[in-house]
Each structure stands twice: as C-alpha cells, then as structure tokens.
C-alpha cells in the first residue's frame, strides 16, 4: 500500500510540475501560431515579468504590480515587434530565431540592470501545509498553479475559437499571404500575439517565482517547454496542457522507478526521451495538425 501511495504522490507531483511547464510552453505556442517563429526569448520574458512584479510589489501591492507589469509587457511587445520582427520580416526562420536569441540577451541584461541580481522571493499567500487525503499529501500551491494554468488555457482556447483576433492569428499561421490579402494586418496581430505571450509570461513567472524564487535561472525552465511543445503539437493550445502533464508525470515516475536502478538523475532527460519517441512515431504531437513539416 505504501508503494501505491508513493506512486500516486509521485504522479500528482509530476502532473502539477508538468502544468507549470505548460504555462511556459503556452507562450511559445502563441508566438509560433502567429508567426511560425520559435521565440527563444520567452524564458527571458518570463524572468523579466517576474522581476517586474516582484520589484513593484512593495510599492503597489500584488494586484497593482500585476497590472503595471501587464502594461510593461505590452510595451515590451511593441518594442520586440519593432526591433526584432519588423526589420527581419521576410528573412528565414533560422535568422529570426537568432534574432530572438539576440533579443533574449538584451532582455536578460536589462532585467538584471534594472532590478539587480539579488534573488527575490515571491510569495503568494497560499498556506504551505499540504492537504491530506488520507495518507496522500497534495500541495495547495500546486493546486493553485494548476487552477491558474487551467484558466489561462481555457481563456486562450476560447480566444482562438471565438474572437476575431484569434481567428486572424489562426489565419496567419495557416497562410500569411492569404491572410494579408483578406485584409488582416500582420503587424498588429503579431503585436497582440506578443502582448499575450507577455501576459502568459507574467503568469508563468509569478507561479514559478512562488515555487523556486525569482532569479536568473528561471529562463532555463523555458527549455523544458520544448519537449512539451513537441508532444502536444507545437500549434495546439489544448495539446500543451496534456503534454505538460505527460512530461511532468514521465519525469517524476521515471525518476522514482527507473532512476533508483541506474543511480538517479533521470529526471532531466525523461522529457527529451519521451519527446524523441513522439518525434519518431507521431511528430505532429497529440493534437497538432499533421500537415506541418513532415517529410
């Protein structure tokens, strides 16, 4: 019985962690959906957003600083569009990717200059003691994070299906030229996509900040988003959630059950092993459209 409880706890821990990965991956999905660009700067944006929230909190309180950060991220979106996308419009995907790498470098430097390099704590006032279901322990923090992730995903799915901008985004992702012919303003839509990605970065940054503190290494969490994207389908919002849970669960269970036999440390590669398996057998992921980029 003990082992079963242990397995379930491992599973729930993993799933909740996975949902946190999904939060970050959502930002990537958004920008990819809008412009077919992999935004390497998403991690830096998450860090920047988290630092801004924490930095403003003593002055404006949590709600106030969240709102202010939204404004900041919108400004950042406009800036990004102007210095990364507009000049590089028409260039190859790889070049634009490198552009986002450059942008990430700028953001990281700027974030640390403005807010300093001191690690900050970000505390959402959620009690620390876990909930007890019989022998099972479930963390309240994780539940909250899961709820937030769920809300965001729901909102985004609704956005893409039901709003004009959402439809415009999907149109652009499908065929940028045709979309422009129909009258969709590419740059405006891109700016909106980046702004949304910024909002997601705030949510992800706050949730992760609550979990691991706000500091530089946060931008590395973003890399975990890649396997999530592959497994879920790089352009599917719903897929991101499911994939995140799969990645998290695989990590935790892998660590717990395989790791003990080979000396541990499996957690970090599990995500990529699962992603590789998907790439071999189902590259479009769980929910992605299978027309994209298959040979």
């Amino acid at each position: 019985m003990g082992d079963l409880i242990y397995a379930i706890e491992l599973l729930t821990t993993g799933v909740f962690t996975g949902l946190m990965y999904s939060m970050v991956a959502l930002g990537f999905v958004l920008i990819f959906k809008a412009s077919s660009v992999f935004n390497y700067a998403q991690g830096a944006m998450t860090l920047f957003a988290a630092l801004t929230v924490v930095g403003l909190m003593p002055h404006l309180g949590l709600a106030g600083s969240l709102l202010a950060t939204v404004a900041v991220m919108c400004v950042m979106a406009v800036v990004a569009e102007r210095i990364v996308f507009r000049p590089l419009m028409g260039a190859s995907q790889l070049t634009i990717f490198m552009g986002t790498v450059g942008f990430a470098s700028i953001l990281e430097g700027a974030a640390q200059i403005v807010w300093g390099t001191k690690p900050q704590g970000l505390k959402l006032d959620i009690p620390v003691e876990p909930l007890k279901f019989g022998e099972l322990l479930v963390s309240r923090q994780d539940l909250f994070a899961a709820a937030v992730a769920g809300v965001f995903v729901g909102a985004l799915v609704w956005f893409f299906r039901n709003t004009r901008t959402g439809l415009a985004l999907r149109a652009i992702a499908d065929d940028p030229a045709a979309a422009q012919v129909v009258g969709i303003k590419l740059r405006r839509v891109w700016a909106i996509a980046w702004a949304l990605a910024g909002a997601i970065a705030i949510a992800a940054g706050v949730l992760w900040g609550n979990r691991i503190g706000v500091h530089f290494a946060m931008s590395l969490i973003a890399l975990k988003a890649l396997p999530v994207l592959i497994i879920g389908g790089i352009d599917s919002v719903a897929g991101v959630i499911v994939a995140g849970m799969i990645v998290g669960a695989a990590e935790a269970l892998g660590e717990g059950f395989i790791g003990t036999y080979i000396g541990g440390g499996v957690q970090d590669v599990m995500a990529y092993i699962v992603a590789l398996l998907f790439l071999m057998f189902r590259p479009s992921g769980l929910f992605g459209q299978s027309t994209i980029l298959r040979v």
């Binding site: 706890e9 821990t13 962690t17 691991i212 590395l220 969490i221 990590e251 957690q267």
Partner: peptide, 8 residues
C-alpha cells in the same frame, strides 16, 4: 531547480 520528484 526541479527537485520535487527527488524529495517525494
């Protein structure tokens, strides 16, 4: 930064 599984 991800230690949850190890701690469980």
């Amino acid at each position: 930064l991800e230690q949850s599984a190890a701690w469980v």
